[in-house]
Amino acid sequence: MFSMIISVVISAGLANNFVFSQTYGICPFLGVSKQTSSAVGMGVAVTVVMVIATMITYPIYMLLVKLDIRFLEILVFIFVIAALVQMLEKIIKKFSPTLYNAMGIYLPLITTNCAVLAVCEITSNALVSGTWERAVIAGVEMNFGFSVIYALAGGLGFMLAMVIMSGMREKINHLNLPKALQGFPITMVTAAFIAMAFYVFVPLGG
């Protein structure tokens, strides 16, 4: 049991890191990684939304399977995520203004973060054509608990990627570069080298 959890965590967070080996959620990764503080805020917000979204969409998807209307999954997932983000924004604003100031501005951006929708699709194995079976990740058959763990680990892996990138970018900003390479191009090239470093985790989590 414990080893299964460990292998799911390593697979989701490091070996199949959302940013560096599956290339999900690149827009916020490039857009909000200019400073470490904002990178941490965005990472936390994405992780929270990812975990709650998986908790809600997984049972809903089971219901869709039972009713045999699986083709509605895209509409249902995106609607749940959009509603969830709006609701979280309202709740945080009401109960903790300091937390709202820290991560509230990143919340609306999360609706269009593909990593969140991707987690829902992967854990519920929504894309299989023909008869539906549970997803198998790192040799573990997914159920509700493992899906939530997968979402948590994936979100933390996303945050790790954001924090590493923001640290690098604070240094890159001081370099004297040709005009064409400034901004996004040099960030992409840097991300390529970090992705190479992350490749060492692939044998661990398949």
Binding site: F20, P185, V189, A191, A192
Partner: peptide
Amino acid sequence: SMPMGAFIVYGLCIALFVY
């Protein structure tokens, strides 16, 4: 063919296009 190749090709393509 791997994601890191994608990052590096994308970055250099943007730079070339802008140039």
